[in-house]
């Protein structure tokens, strides 16, 4: 029986493909602004939201979305209004989020398999969740494209962006909120501990291979899709967590890109 005859596999492929488009679209600005850890940080905060969802008896995914959005704004607020360095603020939310998540899930008992949210799980993705992911992904893609040049300008130089009359505070908050939304929606597929890699590694591949920002978008999305598809298939056949397989495939493509680039440089020298 083909793996695509299983409905859970089709749902995982659809959801994974949506994440593979949105994650690098945002990841480009996250990496360009030297805040690569923000995805991991918000994912850990989202895990606390899973715990809160379990405690309150609501959907863990909605709990994750709410807490990730609050954490996104909290990170931006602390970085803007206090003399804390960005990495210190991210470390605060990262460890605090995971600590709270583990504590909350333990308090409630083993009513959910928390490991699924840490490393991703194919079979737990419901059709309803795929629909919600589709709608939120379309909204996120629309917003990212609408603000693409402004986000690029912000990443290139905040100082120059503000002197052109653009609201840099709004742009930074919007990026943080979109990242929080994307991360919390991806917990079940890629897992909270691994989603950061989906935003960062395809972008690293693009940095290795591309010269322009616009071609970087296309290249990072193509490699993210390849990683998701190959990772899900490997996950199915080897019975390993989907997030783990997807991230390993991302690392594989990154190593391949480095080799190709290295070979090209050697050939031209």
């Amino acid at each position: 029986m083909s793996i695509f005859e299983y409905s859970f596999m089709v749902r995982a492929l659809l959801a994974g493909s949506l994440i593979a488009v949105v994650a690098p679209l945002l990841g480009i600005f996250v990496v360009a602004r030297n805040t690569s850890l923000i995805a991991d940080t918000l994912a850990h905060a989202a895990l606390a939201g899973v715990g809160i969802g379990v405690i309150l008896g609501i959907s863990p995914t909605w709990g994750a979305v709410a807490v990730a959005l609050l954490a996104a704004l909290g990170v931006e607020y602390l970085m803007k209004n206090h003399r804390f360095s960005a990495d210190a603020v991210l470390a605060l939310f990262l460890s605090g989020g995971l600590a709270l998540a583990v504590a909350l899930v333990r308090v409630k008992g083993a009513s959910i398999n928390f490991e699924n949210y840490l490393f991703g799980s194919l079979i737990t993705v419901t059709a309803n969740e795929v629909w919600i992911l589709l709608l939120t992904s379309l909204a996120m893609i629309g917003l990212i494209l609408a603000y693409w040049w402004s986000f690029l300008s912000l990443s290139f130089s905040e100082e120059l962006t503000s002197t052109r009359g653009l609201n840099t505070k709004m742009l930074k908050n919007l990026l943080a909120v979109l990242t929080g939304l994307m991360v919390s929606q991806s917990l079940k597929i890629v897992g909270g501990l691994l989603i950061g890699a989906m935003m960062v590694i395809p972008v690293l591949i693009a940095i290795t291979l591309c010269k322009s920002a616009r071609s970087s978008v296309l290249v990072s999305i193509i490699f993210a899709l390849l990683s998701v598809w190959s990772g899900l298939i490997i996950s199915y056949y080897l019975n390993i967590p989907s997030g783990s397989a997807i991230v390993l495939m991302n690392v594989f493509w990154f190593a391949a890109a480095l080799l190709v680039k290295g070979f090209g440089t050697f050939k031209n020298s």
Partner: peptide
Amino acid sequence: KFTFPITIEEVVATGVVRPGFWG
């Protein structure tokens, strides 16, 4: 500090105040 791939024309294009959709 910006090490992300960007072409010369893209740098200048970030100065357009009210740009449209990507590309």
